[in-house]
Design a protein around this nucleic acid. Structure first.
Lengths: 144, 144
DNA sequence: AACAAATAGGATAAAATTATCCGAATTAAA
DNA sequence: TTTAATTCGGATAATTTTATCCTATTTGTT
């Protein structure tokens, strides 16, 4: 469903959102520890998110990553997924047909349609900030 | 979501169901052509399905694959997915946590719960025979 | 009996994904 | 000004997935 890179990206962003609420930077080492992910690989994912302006970075000693407070409340999961995995998850046919459509549907098209819409909705309406609140309130976890 | 192998497996089985209704065998070449998949790789997938007794094979000249009429009407997509990809799609956490649960949920757990149930239902209630009927009636296609 | 058409299955190759390593650039702190 | 911490980005490696190739075996047909 989601690539490992994307899973890391989502978890890292939620963690960063939590830190940014406290006006804190977090560096790769802290992030990788918080989400139990390989450090170097996580660094690559963070780079992608910086390039797409979803998160921001500060170079040099005492540097790290953070999320701009102005945009923090508007970041959706869809933005992260699109940045890392692209929009395949929303566009692609469940059986891999290139031109699956209402007119020329694959055998599973109609049965899968609603699921795809639900996934799209989940990604588009889930705010990173909201997930971070749940984390802070210990209603959810990033590891285990 | 589904691996390529699994996509081929589902399409091949639906095609075979269609052929088996007509009491026809189909060999790898015919199947691969019908579902536009690489022949040798498709052969491997078919082998897996034979091993799990989802389809049957006839060796030697004029041989090929078919589905036993007695079980044809009972084969679900879940059986095929489980045979090829395993049950990860049903069991795994959307963010990759090993022990994601109601008690210790990942940040997306509750939002993803219903989707996972819907996917499970789709796979468990979709009969290969039913999908084959749609194909025969030209309500759906396996290629494109 | 010989041949040709098939599946079975092991070995190998190619491609994609995941992961690591290292050097350059940046910047705060000593 | 030097040093240390850090991101950036390129190169490389490991693993998994996808795909191909080849040989043995089976079996219908000639």
């Amino acid at each position: 469903m989601l690539s490992k890179a994307c899973e890391y990206g989502i978890k890292a962003t939620v963690f960063l959102a939590q830190q940014s609420e406290k006006e804190k930077l977090a560096n790769v080492k802290e992030i990788a520890k918080a989400i139990q992910s390989p450090e170097a690989f996580t660094a690559k994912v963070l780079q992608q998110l910086v390039q797409k302006s979803i998160i921001q970075s500060v170079k040099g000693a005492q540097g790290g990553f953070f999320i701009d407070k102005k945009v923090l409340k508007k970041i959706t999961l869809m933005q992260i997924v699109a940045a890392i995995d692209g929009e395949d998850i929303i566009n692609n046919c469940v059986l891999g047909l290139s031109h699956c459509s209402e007119k020329k549907p694959c055998p599973l098209h109609h049965k899968y349609k609603k699921i795809k819409i639900d996934i799209t909705n989940m990604l588009q309406t889930s705010l990173v900030s909201e997930l971070a609140v749940g984390l802070t309130q210990k209603l959810s976890v990033l590891t285990g």
